[in-house]
Amino acid sequence: MDLFIQIIIAVITVAFVILMFFLIQTIKALTATLDEVRSTVGELKNDVSQISGDVKEMIHHTNEMTLDVRTKLRSLDVVFATIHDIGQTLHSFTGVMKETAVGIVHNMKDKAKTKPEVYDEQANQANRKSSGNVTNALADGILSSVRIWRKLKQQ
């Protein structure tokens, strides 16, 4: 029986040695993996700090570009206001011209039907009246142009 116990102790010892060998191999592999993880984390710290610096710089440049674009858009406000004034002037001018033309045509038709000699006198009056409207429209246009010119000179 002593021999049997010695054989069992020897088998247990061999099994324990084999178990320890594989456990040591596993621990070595884990150590190598942990070293790689440490180096990767160190590299990531460097990369993250570099990227954060780049991001800060990019945000700064973006802010500068935004301010530049805002400034340029403000300068375009004057141009669009000028275009609006020109459009209003042209609209007034064409409205006056249209009314004048309609009035002249209407007066000509009415006078042509009634008396030819009266027609000539009233046509002259209508022409004088329409030239007054045209003159007013031209004056409005000139005033608007002067206002626009002053705004452009201020910029």
Rank of each mutant, 00 (worst) to 15 (best):
Q122T: 13
L143W: 01
V69H: 03
K113H: 07
Q154Y: 04
A137K: 00
T40R: 12
Y119G: 14
N124A: 15
D54A: 07
V134H: 02
F80E: 14
A32S: 09
K151P: 02
Q6H: 09
D110V: 11
D54P: 00
T13P: 03
A15I: 03
T114F: 07
I27M: 12
Y119D: 13
V78T: 15
V105F: 00
T94S: 14
E43F: 05
Q50A: 14
T40W: 05
G132V: 08
S145A: 15
V41G: 04
S75W: 07
H106C: 02
K45T: 13
H106W: 00
S49L: 14
T13D: 06
V14R: 00
S75I: 06
M108I: 07
Q125N: 13
F21P: 05
R128L: 15
D47G: 10
Q154L: 03
K72Y: 08
I51N: 12
N136F: 01
R147A: 02
T100D: 11
T66R: 08
Q155C: 02
V105Y: 00
R38K: 15
F4A: 13
L3E: 14
A137P: 03
R128I: 15
S144G: 15
D110A: 12
K109Y: 02
G141I: 00
V78P: 03
I24Q: 07
R150I: 13
L34N: 13
Q88L: 07
K115M: 10
T71Y: 11
T71V: 07
A32V: 08
D35S: 11
S75D: 15
Q125W: 00
F80A: 08
D2M: 08
V48T: 15
V118P: 02
S52H: 06
Q6G: 04
Q6E: 10
D140L: 03
A15N: 03
K72F: 05
T94C: 08
Q6D: 09
K56H: 04
S52I: 08
G132S: 09
M65Q: 12
M108V: 06
D2Y: 06
N124M: 15
I104M: 11
I8P: 01
N46W: 01
I7A: 08
Y119P: 01
I8C: 05
D140H: 02
